[in-house]
Amino acid sequence: MRRFMTLLTTAVLTTLLVGSTGGWASASGERVPGGPLPGTAAWLADDSLGKKLPDPATATPSDVAAFFASLTGAQRQRLIEDHPTVVGNLDGVPVKVRYQANASAGEQVLAYDPRGRGLIARVVGDLENAARVSVIVPGSDIDISTFDRTARWAADLQEEAGEDTAVIAWAGYTTPSGIGLDLATGRLAEAGAERLNRFTEGLDVAGLPSPSLFCHSYGSVVCGLAASDTDARDIVVMGSPGMRADDVTALGTDAHVWAARSPDDWIGRVPHVEVLGLGHGADPTSSDFGATVLPADDVPAHDAYFTPGTSTLTAFAAIVDGER
C-alpha cells in the first residue's frame, strides 16, 4: 500500500511539474478538433470531374495520391481553387499542390487547419528534392499563435544540416495548454500520434525519404505512441517526460532512438512514472531505456536544444546527415 501511495504521489507531482511557461489549463482540458474539415461537404458533393472525390475521413494517403496522379493539371488547379481547405490538409496530395492550396497561410505551408487554436505545418528547404527529411514535433503551448518558435527551430536545424535537407515544423496536433491534467496524461498525445502517423505516411507515398523525427517535451510522448506505426529512420527526443514505454524495445520501432536532456532542464525534476494514466513512464536518457544519449551539457534551458552553437544542434544535424 505504501508503495502504491508513493507512486500515486509522484504521478500527481507530474501533473504539477510537466509543462512549459503557460498558465493553468482549464479543468475540462483542450478540445481536439473533430469532425470533417470545413468545406468537406462541398468537396464530397462535387461531381464535376466525372469521378468521386476521395473521402477525407476514409481514404488512405495512398488512395489520395493515386487519385491526384490521375488528374490533369487543369483538374488539380480547379480543386485547389474550389476546395483549398480540403486539398491543403489531405495527406497524400502532392507537395506543390498542398503549398498552393495553403498559400493564404504563408509560403511552403503543408497543412493549415484554422479550427480551435489552429494546426499548421511549414517546410524549410526544398522538400520535393530533399535527400533527407526531418520533422520537428513540438510540445505544449504550441499552436498557430506561438508557432514561430517551432519554425525557428526548423530553420536552425536546416541551416546546420545543409541545403540537401528539408525540415518540417509540424504543429499538426492539439498540444496541452498551460499546466494541467492534459500534460500528465496521454489523451492529446494519442490523437497527435494518429495524426503524425498519417502525415508521415503522406510523405512516404510522395516518394520522400524516411524522416528523422525530432520530438521536444510532450512531443516525445506523441512520438513514443507513434513509433510503431511510422517509417521514421530516427526518433530523437529532448527534454522528454517519457515516451509511454519502458524501453526502446517496447516502442516497437526499427528507428534509431536518441535522447538528450540538459542538466539545466527542469524536466529532470519530473518523476518518470506512469500510474492510473498519469505520467509518461521511463526516462529516455536512463541507461536502462536503451536510447543513444546525446551530449547536452551546454544547453541552458528546456527550450534551447536547437540553439545554434550547442552540442545538441550539432548532434541533430549529424543524425540527419547520417554521420552518427
Rank of each mutant, 00 (worst) to 15 (best):
L294A: 00
I319A: 04
F289N: 01
K51S: 11
A111I: 08
L7S: 11
A111V: 12
G19R: 04
A232K: 05
V236Y: 07
S20L: 07
E81N: 13
V299L: 01
D246Q: 15
N129Y: 14
T150I: 13
T85P: 06
P56H: 13
S140D: 12
G116C: 06
S145I: 07
Y112N: 09
T10N: 15
G180L: 05
R115I: 05
P36Q: 14
S26M: 15
G309H: 10
S26L: 15
S286C: 12
G139V: 04
G252W: 09
W258N: 06
P54G: 09
Q158E: 11
A25G: 15
L53M: 03
P114I: 01
R244S: 13
A193W: 00
G322M: 10
L313G: 01
A101E: 09
A245P: 05
I142K: 02
W258F: 12
V64C: 01
P308K: 04
G118V: 04
S26G: 15
E274D: 11
E128R: 13
A25R: 13
L119Q: 10
L110A: 09
E30H: 00
L313R: 02
Y99D: 12
K51Q: 13
S145C: 05
F67L: 03
D156R: 12
C223Q: 03
A42Y: 13
D288P: 06
V93F: 02
V257N: 05
G279V: 05
V221C: 03
L49S: 03
P138K: 01
V86W: 00
D298C: 06
F147T: 11
V137F: 00
A301I: 01
F67N: 05
D246E: 15
T185I: 03
L127N: 03
W170I: 07
L208A: 00
G322D: 07
G207L: 01
G162Y: 06
V257F: 02
R31N: 14
P114T: 09
C215N: 06
G252E: 06
V64G: 04
F199S: 08
A111G: 13
F199L: 08
F67P: 02
S48V: 08
H216S: 08
P54R: 05
V124T: 15
P138T: 04
P263D: 04
L110F: 07
A42W: 12
R269L: 15
V137G: 00
G281W: 05
D247L: 09
G118L: 00
Q75I: 08
A250W: 06
T10C: 14
G180D: 13
A57C: 14
V167F: 04
V124E: 14
S70C: 00
E274M: 14
E274I: 09
A42C: 12
P138L: 04
T60L: 03
G192H: 01
P176K: 06
F306E: 10
T174L: 10
G116M: 03
G29P: 10
S287V: 00
A245L: 06
E194N: 11
W258Y: 13
L16E: 11
L188P: 02
I136W: 01
L225C: 02
Q100Y: 10
T72H: 09
L71S: 07
R233Q: 15
L13T: 07
T230S: 11
T175I: 07
S287D: 10
E81S: 13
R149N: 14
